[in-house]
Design a protein around this nucleic acid. Structure first.
Lengths: 206, 206
DNA sequence: GTCTATAGGTTGATAGAC
DNA sequence: GTCTATCAACCTATAGAC
């Protein structure tokens, strides 16, 4: 007994069982982030994925198809946001959790959106895809806005605030907070998350 | 008399007196926006500028130098923001004017920042340049925050709000509003500018 | 300062064996 | 499905005349 399983499942020489296709997608995302879309070559992607260039074209047809697959693959699995997933005992914690969830998504999603922006064809293709999926900030705004409206009806939130505007402030804050370090590589002079939510709660308090 | 001036100022064949260097910078910005950084070639820039490729390299050394010049040229002339420039009789109008000024700048500046993000070397070069210039949202936040603090001291703004947070909300709103159509090519579900400022003023009202 | 011509290196993509 | 060639196109950059 040496712990090695019999090779009855076919030829599996060299590398681990990792599927080539997945490796290529993963490598592409990596190159996109590290080098930028202007420097992403099918050659480097293949190298990092540990496959040949031919494999890249076999799976995705052409460079455009590869990038398209990367973008849609990164953007799709996100819109699972819901209040249920982040609901907590008090309003503040619920809002904070929601903000964290949005930021968590944006941390990945923005890289992809920014990358797409560097190539006109990809930019348009991605925009069409997003429009088709009805993707956008209005989703987050509605989810959290509805939640606030409910709380308002229950009397836990001041009656004369606009729930949708407050929801927008939270989504907008999440966007700014995620975007800033990406575009400027530093984040100074911006109020802390705590200060931000202190002010939001002051707006909401009855 | 046929309205043609004598050609005593030297050789000016073909096109108008426009300086080649400026034409190249302008064309580059144009290509950057239309096609994206991944598709910007010195060839197309030269073509659009109406000069030869050799001229491009004569003026900027290499492709990197060209893009660097474009970026720094677009980013520099901006940070002239001040309250003085937008001050109005009432608080709301002043804030709205300031917001417009920020959005006006971002409309141009963001294109450049997004483009730089598509190439790792440019991304780092631009980040270094911005850090050196102490560029960032903290400038706008401080300007408008100071203004609000003054109004607060004068009694025209409620005492228990955090001026810097409100300033941040305004800058953050400007960023979101400018960024969204660029990244998503549509803008739905976002509160109107009017609704946003209504809520801001409600926060500030004594 | 601007042009033409061209060199030299990459890059996306294909063909065919395994 | 994956690999090894291989190509044709393209792109940055340089040299030298005007």
């Amino acid at each position: 007994m040496d712990g090695v399983q019999p090779m009855t499942t076919g030829p599996r020489r060299g590398r681990p069982p990792a599927g080539g296709r997945e490796q290529i997608l993963k490598a592409s995302l990596e190159v996109l982030r590290e080098r930028g879309i202007a420097r992403l070559t099918t050659r480097e992607v293949a190298e990092r994925a540990g496959v040949s260039e031919g494999s890249v074209f076999y799976h995705f047809g052409d460079r455009f198809g590869l990038l398209r697959a990367v973008f849609e693959g990164s953007l799709t699995p996100l819109l699972k946001l819901s209040v249920a997933g982040v609901a907590a005992a008090d309003v503040r914690t619920t809002l904070e959790n929601f903000s964290d969830a949005v930021q968590g998504f944006l941390a990945t999603g923005l890289d992809v959106l920014l990358a797409a922006h560097g190539d006109a064809e990809l930019r348009e293709g991605t925009a069409a895809f997003l429009a088709e999926q009805d993707y956008g900030p209005h989703r987050g705004i509605r989810i959290i806005g509805d939640y606030l409206a409910t709380q308002q009806a229950a009397g836990s939130v001041r009656a004369d605030v606009d729930p949708r505007v407050v929801a927008y402030l939270i989504v907008s804050d999440a966007l700014s907070r995620t975007m800033q370090p990406k575009l400027l590589a530093h984040a100074k002079g911006v109020p802390t998350r705590k200060a931000f939510f202190d002010s939001i709660m002051a707006m909401l308090s009855t």
